[in-house]
Design a protein around this nucleic acid. Structure first.
Lengths: 208, 208
DNA sequence: GTCTATAAAACGATAGAC
DNA sequence: GTCTATCGTTTTATAGAC
């Protein structure tokens, strides 16, 4: 249990707590369903029934389906961003832990990444599912994320650790490699996962 | 015009030809719409009206929406496969032309790749939109495509041109980089495209 | 070959009971 | 806070006219 949740349990009345937890449960279910079936493929009924709710009851917590999409993508992006921000050290070490974190996260929220790409730059973005302000916010998260990679790579070039020429191309290539990983690899336990992460990071370092 | 189409023009009656062209037009429109809005986001109405047809008229040519999806993905995959099969030469030269072809193709059918990934391994595959036999066929195309990269890389390792250790990881990393390209780059003319392709292939060769 | 009309189902969303 | 009932719309798909 997170610290804030623990505090919440002490000071807030039960119904507020329940409401707050329910909201989170719904977002988690939305992430699952949107990831598994796509935004248009997943129905509010699917999401609601996954946590034993009727689809009508969802509307008590969130006012529309697109808000659910925004909250879902926002949650994932922010969690990933926070994790990456926590990666420190010399350029090489920092990038290594960023890559490990990114891979781990991608496999945890398994296959949510295509959804995110789609919301940020793909089909859903073109269709205008989200309001401009929401899109702008999510894109900023993504930009911040890319910025972290950018800084690390640039620092490594400056210090002479890395020899790559074009920072932008390099960063997006690394992200391309990492994003594509869940499509073809599916490590089933920690041992396989560790071996896989080692291989992937080795490959990425060849770009630097 | 392809050879078979040229022959067709000579020997087949007009209405058969027209029917055949219409079928192709519909698939092209389906590719556009599915790529732009996703399979679930695109409606038969969208597809039909893009080529001045009513949605009901589509059913004369194809019996359901999922057949349209299969035909669309099948067309792209086979065209790409054929192009890649045409790339020959020593490992390095062969891989280079394969990468160029892949990038060119991806930007031409701009943003169809996420759809394909989704049909092969993602949301649509999990939801069982396509019949097992259709899925199996498309996966085989994809496997054949990966096989071409695999052979080229393996040949380069054998000849001593490449120093990479794990063929599989390398191949999927290259494909990851190339697939991700349309998400962040959008060259607007041939000059920009050429410069971009050079940068991307340079990056990929660092993996080899 | 393409159209109109329409069926049948699914979906997002709202109103109101409890 | 959650449910039932229901509305309005959209969507896939079919039947039949021309």
């Amino acid at each position: 249990m997170s610290q804030s949740a623990a505090i919440e349990k002490q000071v807030k009345p039960a119904f507020v707590r329940r409401r707050s937890n329910r909201r989170r449960e719904i977002i988690d279910a939305a992430i699952d369903q949107f990831s598994a079936r796509g935004y248009d493929g997943a129905t509010l009924k699917d999401i609601a029934e996954a946590i034993d709710l009727t689809h009508a009851a969802l509307y008590y917590y969130y006012k529309s389906k697109d808000v659910l999409l925004f909250e879902a993508v926002s949650l994932i992006l922010n969690e990933l961003l926070d994790t990456l921000k926590g990666c420190e050290g010399a350029p090489r070490a920092q990038l290594k832990s960023m890559m490990v974190a990114q891979l781990t996260y991608q496999f945890e929220y398994h296959r949510a990444m295509p959804l995110i790409d789609s919301v940020l730059f793909g089909a859903h973005s073109r269709r205008g599912v989200l309001k401009d302000e929401q899109s702008r916010y999510l894109r900023q998260c993504q930009k911040d994320m890319i910025g972290l990679y950018h800084s690390a790579v640039a620092a490594g070039i400056k210090s002479g650790e890395f020899t790559c020429k074009d920072v932008r191309t390099t960063v997006f290539s690394i992200i391309g490699i990492l994003s594509h990983a869940p499509y073809w690899a599916s490590p089933v336990n920690d041992k396989e996962m560790n071996a896989f992460v080692e291989k992937q990071t080795d490959i990425c370092f060849r770009l630097l």
